[in-house]
Design a protein around this nucleic acid. Structure first.
Lengths: 223, 223
DNA sequence: TTTGAATTCAAACGCTCGTTTGAAAAGGAT
DNA sequence: ATCCTTTTCAAACGAGCGTTTGAATTCAAA
């Protein structure tokens, strides 16, 4: 395999990450990708066997990028208490979302998949384990009692991950009916508020208060 | 306008609600809609001027259905305290999402729009005010101090609305890596958990504790 | 320098999409 | 029954999609 081939493959993947993160798997076209990569349209089928094969490669590359680039290190998070870990988790990702780098794009792809899952992604999830899940589990476990059933654990993980999804398209806040001006100050405030709300929400798991009339009447774990 | 015309229009709108809620505006095709409505393909252009015109009509019908059918009545919610209102808000919508009626479909359409907004919907939002926004504002105000700036108010409203979006596709929880069995019991538990977390999260707005180290240390407003 | 495999490329294929067209059918008024 | 408008309908259009094809080109090994 020559040097030029590597560069074609790489630029295709790079362009695909940009396009798929902006428009999703179905919405992103091979024509747009090859044009951005300055490659021939048939190159995708030649190198990856088709659009789906390219997407699989994008998912792999994204997972790797996340593992290498993310400041969300499992060891670092393990050393923190619950609130600290949540704050780091939220702020790191909120920052990444507003950058347009690989990390932010990976998260956007992931969010596209939460609304309209492609079977490529489902197959991918069934075999590979995403580091973001392990990190979310690590954080959530700081709040949940030890004996928590797996079902509850997964609900909490799912919920924590979704808190980021919510703000994956902050442009929405700039349109009606919200009409917010999203300067850096507002984004910081958003991160603080979201962290505080997430911490308080996860703290409700401390004691099993299901079916209680006023579930908010206890909170504030002192972890 | 004859009786038959009304029925064609209505069955087109009805079919469109079903299709658009399942696949979004871009993903739903006029071929599928006309087939479900047992109408000719050109009928959409004749009656509504095109796919976009039909979608506008769907949005109108959905808003009306929501106003008429939703148990989320502004007067009823106004009489409740914060936690009660949140619980009603969450549970009502969670139930609607799992039904496949007009109300559930309206909410699914709305969620599609949060990820990939159509300009039809943006135009719609710019002119018409959605009742769900007013209800969310009403609830959020029970938790926010009186002097809260509009920016913070909108963040809280946006966040509250997103809590429902999160669970708009509960099927996701049934696939890897979650693999949950979503029987009625699990859905009830999910509603309870989500209500409790939402109440606790909104309670953090009671006092301005931005930059505080442990924002969860107070909760439970007694409105 | 020759040879054969790897890679690029322009063109075309088959499909689905939203929309247009012009004629046929249906309905209501006179 | 006639006439004119409203509504339906099958067919076709043009555009975009992912993919295939087969020839041209590039490249490294012999």
């Amino acid at each position: 395999m020559s040097r030029a081939v590597e560069s074609t493959r790489e630029s295709l993947i790079k362009a695909a990450i940009a396009v798929f993160s902006a428009k999703g798997f179905e919405g992103g076209s091979v024509r747009e990708i090859t044009q951005a990569a300055k490659a021939n349209r048939a190159a995708i089928n030649y190198h990856f066997g088709g659009k789906e094969g390219l997407y699989r490669e994008v998912l792999k590359a994204s997972v790797q990028a996340f593992a290498e680039l993310s400041p969300l290190d499992a060891d670092r998070l393990a050393a923190m208490d619950g609130p600290q870990a949540v704050q780091t988790f939220i702020r790191t990702q909120l920052k990444a979302l507003n950058r347009r780098d690989h990390l932010g794009r990976f998260m956007r792809i992931f969010t596209w998949e939460t609304l309209s899952p492609s079977h490529v992604f489902n197959d991918f999830l069934a075999t590979e384990r995403l580091p973001i899940f392990e990190i979310a589990e690590l954080i959530v476990r700081k709040f949940l009692p030890n004996g928590t059933e797996p079902g509850d654990l997964w609900i909490a993980i799912f919920w924590l991950l979704s808190q980021i999804d919510t703000f994956i398209r902050p442009e929405r806040l700039e349109r009606p009916p919200f009409n917010l001006k999203l300067d850096q100050q507002m984004i910081d405030r958003l991160g603080d508020r979201l962290s505080a709300m997430t911490i308080a929400a996860l703290s409700t798991w401390r004691a099993d208060q299901r079916h209680s009339g006023s579930p908010a009447s206890q909170a504030a774990p002192s972890l």
